[in-house]
Design a protein around this nucleic acid. Structure first.
Lengths: 200, 200
DNA sequence: ACCTGAACACCGTTCAAGT
DNA sequence: ACCTGAACACCGTTCAAGT
C-alpha cells in the first residue's frame, strides 16, 4: 500500500473530514460511503475504521465540526449594539443562512443517529449549550426579572421553532403560495412571540 | 416459489405496508430492508420491486399512510366548542402525541427523500394542505379580517414551530434541565405567538 | 507495531430463464 | 405473461497475514 506511514492518525482524521466536507457541499450523505471516502484520500476502508472507530463515529466528528462552524458564525455575526429583539432576529436569520449554505452538512447534523441510541456525548452537549446561552442572554436583557428556568424555556422554544421553520422550508414541505417567504415566517415568529413574552 | 398467485398486487401492497408498519412501531427504518420485508411476507425482493417500483416508492407509500393516520387523528381530536386558542393548543398537543406514539413512522415521514430530489407528489401535497386548513380556520375565527395570505403565513409559522419543538424534543436535542417539559414549550409558543398575532 | 487484502454478511436492483 | 433465482455492483466491519 502506497500511503503507509505517510500521515499520522491526526492527519488522516483531517484528510477524511475535509474530504467529507467537500462532498457535503455538493450532495447528501447518501451519495457518500466509507469505502468511497477512503478511496478518495488514498487509504483503505479499514484504516478509517482504525482511526475513527466506525463510520458512525466518523460522521459524529463531522457533526462536531459543523457545530463549531455554526457557533462561530452565529457569534461573529451577532450585533452588539442592537436591541434584544434585533439580536434574536439576527440570530435566527444567521441560522437560516447557515442551513441554506450548508444544507447537507446541516441535514447530517440532525438526522444522523448513533445506532444504539446512546446519549449524545458531553462535548456535543456543551457546544449546543453555548449557543443557547446567546439566546438566553438576549432574553435576559429584555426582561431582567425572569428566572433562569423561564429563560431556558423561552430560549429553547424560540430556537426549536426557528429550527422547525428552517427544516421544513429547506425540504419544501410547507407548500405555501410562492409569495410566502421563509424570512417572513421567521420574522413573524420572533416578533409575535417576543412581543408577548416580554409582557411576562 | 410457494406464494405465486396467492395474492393480487393490491394484496401484496397491503401485506408489505402492514408488515413495515409493525416494524416501525418497534424500531427505526434503518433496521429494516427490502430483503427482510420481502422475506417477512413470503415473497422475493424482486416481487416488491415489481409491485411498488422501487424500495423508495414503497417508503413513500408508507408515508402516505402515516399522513392519513395523522390527519384522521388531528381531525377527530379537534374540539368543536373550544376557543380558537384552545383549538390551536389541542392541535399542537395531538401532533406531539402522535409523534411520540409513532416515533419511527414519524421520523420516516420527514427524513425520507426521493433520490433525485423530485417534487413531492400531488396527493401528498393535498394531504398536507388539508391539515393546514384546520389551523387556518382556527386563526380565521380569531381575526376574521386577516387576508388569506396572512392566514397562510401564520398557520405555517405555527405548524413549523410546533414541528421543530417535537422533532428536537423526541431526539433529546434540547438539553434543558429536567423540569422543562416539551408540553410547556408548546403551550408557551401557542400562547405568546397567538396573543400577539391576534392584536394584528 | 501498524496497515490492509480478502472475506463476511449484508444491501437494492436487474434480467434471463423458468413456469 | 408473470414471477423470481441468480447475478451484479455495492455496503460497513473484521481479522489474519503481510510489511
Amino acid at each position: 500500500m502506497a500511503r503507509r506511514n505517510d500521515h499520522t492518525h491526526e492527519q488522516i482524521r483531517q484528510l477524511a473530514l475535509a474530504r467529507l466536507g467537500e462532498h457535503l457541499s455538493n450532495g447528501p450523505l447518501a451519495n457518500m460511503s466509507l469505502r468511497k471516502l477512503a478511496q478518495a484520500i488514498g487509504y483503505s476502508p479499514a484504516t478509517l475504521i482504525n482511526v475513527f472507530g466506525s463510520y458512525d463515529q466518523l460522521l459524529l466528528s463531522a457533526n462536531a465540526d459543523t457545530l463549531d462552524q455554526l457557533a462561530a458564525r452565529l457569534i461573529e455575526q451577532q450585533p452588539q449594539h442592537a436591541t434584544p429583539q434585533q439580536q434574536l432576529l439576527s440570530f435566527a436569520e444567521t441560522y437560516l443562512q447557515f442551513a441554506r449554505q450548508h444544507r447537507y452538512r446541516w441535514q447530517l447534523l440532525f438526522e444522523h443517529r448513533l445506532p444504539d441510541e446512546e446519549a449524545v456525548p458531553d462535548w456535543q452537549q456543551q457546544r449546543i449549550n453555548r449557543l443557547f446561552a446567546v439566546i438566553e442572554s438576549a432574553l435576559a436583557q429584555l426582561v431582567p426579572t425572569q428566572t433562569a428556568q423561564q429563560l431556558q424555556l423561552a430560549a429553547r422554544t424560540i430556537w426549536a421553532s426557528v429550527h422547525g421553520i428552517c427544516a421544513l422550508a429547506l425540504d419544501d414541505k410547507l407548500f405555501a403560495s410562492s409569495d410566502i417567504r421563509v424570512e417572513n415566517m421567521i420574522a413573524s415568529l420572533i416578533r409575535h412571540y417576543v412581543s408577548d413574552w416580554q409582557q411576562q
